[in-house]
Design a protein around this nucleic acid. Structure first.
Lengths: 221, 221
DNA sequence: CCGTCATTCAATGGAATAATTGAATGACGG
DNA sequence: CCGTCATTCAATTATTCCATTGAATGACGG
């Protein structure tokens, strides 16, 4: 280890954190961990990756102080070290959104830019929910829903949206949310619902942001 | 280029930004650019690095949408693309501060933890300045001071602190600030002033944060 | 105490990144 | 149009990072 002055040493520490965020798979892992603690195996299954690979990335995230590990018998449960990680994730996303035309292109391309994709804000959703004007669906898998969801939301995992919507009244607006502002599950849910003649919109972002905003969260018994 | 789904493509875009932040030298460059636009040559001189090296890092930052370039005759002036970059920098710093014991160790080690290093908050500084209770010094180089400084601050570049303090009254408190919360110049200024018998403290952070907080900035004529 | 299972470690090869050097571009002044 | 200067590009080497594989660790259940 070469001798460094304190200033360089500090920048190196900051760079360790940023570097750990600088890999698509690790970012995806963080977004999953933002939904709740996960074991290595479960995370590997969710991301369809070899367990050893996920384990190594988790080590990298742990070295950077981004995730923390807790042993529970044979299992090791990983979770985000604290809320500052979500802030950093959101800030990086913010730079990308504002500066990289590519992000805009991807999002628009995904939805074909065919009609208004104006998302519902958290504030607006709270008002609509209070007045009973909309049906709120959480399109994440059941296990993530169980760990915490918006009060009043119904869990309709993405694969079941079509079947569920058969029983829903046409005309009543549906709002969908999932893991975060770029989580594609809510995009797909809204697209499917609209194709079936429903009025549907996305919440502007997802569960981690809802919780980070200090809004109430309901946990399954 | 392999075929990717939109979700992966988005994570890749986000990773580009984080990866660009994941190098100590680039972080230091960002902190300098946060003080104002700089040409490649000036930046290289400030960081004591070969021009070509800085140029390449600037290209990397530009590809990530972090800095923008503006040609002015023979010179190219680089500056931060927008304020979201400062947010991202601060967020990464926040993770490092909270999670990496190493950061704390470095800062403490730098000051030997011998007495209270409680910094002055922005709010407190504004009150002290309004009541005329402190002398505020900006220890950055003169060119950075000229591009914007806290109203009422005196520019005392680090190398001149000792000479300047000879004329300062003992007993009146001095507050020093520079480029940001980890900028070591203010640490050194405070250490030097205290060694000379003055009462001195640091502002909690520096110029970019002051500006980002929407507080008034004074620019040299 | 032994088998099983979740996780981590170690070693490999291949890809990306970084610093350095020297040459190439592009704009200004004469 | 030519020399100068700021900047960028290209090529090289050393380093680091990444995915994969198979073996090692550590804890539980019998």
């Amino acid at each position: 280890m070469s001798i460094r002055n304190p200033k360089q040493a500090l920048y190196e520490q900051f760079a360790i954190v940023a570097k750990a965020l600088g890999h698509p798979l690790r970012l995806e892992m963080i977004e999953h961990l933002a939904q709740g603690a996960r074991s290595v195996e479960v995370l590997a299954a969710k991301l369809a990756r070899p367990v050893a690979n996920i384990s190594q990335h988790l080590q990298a995230l742990r070295r950077a102080g981004i995730v923390s590990a807790e042993r529970d018998g044979k299992f090791v449960h990983y979770s985000l070290a604290d809320d500052s990680v979500l802030s950093a994730f959101a800030a990086v996303r913010g730079v990308a959104e504002r500066q990289l035309a590519e992000v805009d292109r991807i999002v628009r391309g995904y939805f074909d830019a065919r009609d208004d994709m104006q998302p519902v804000t958290r504030r607006e959703l709270r008002r609509l929910m209070r007045d009973g004007l909309v049906t709120l669906i959480d399109v994440r898998p059941a296990d993530e829903f169980a760990l915490g969801h918006v009060p009043g939301a119904i869990n309709v995992p993405l694969g079941k949206v079509r079947a569920w919507s058969a029983d829903a009244a046409i005309g009543r607006e549906i709002v969908a949310y999932c893991r975060g502002p770029w989580c594609v599950m809510s995009f797909e849910a809204v697209a499917a619902l609209r194709a079936l003649g429903h009025s549907a919109r996305r919440l502007e972002d997802g569960m981690p942001e809802w919780k980070a905003a200090g809004l109430p969260v309901e946990v399954a018994a």
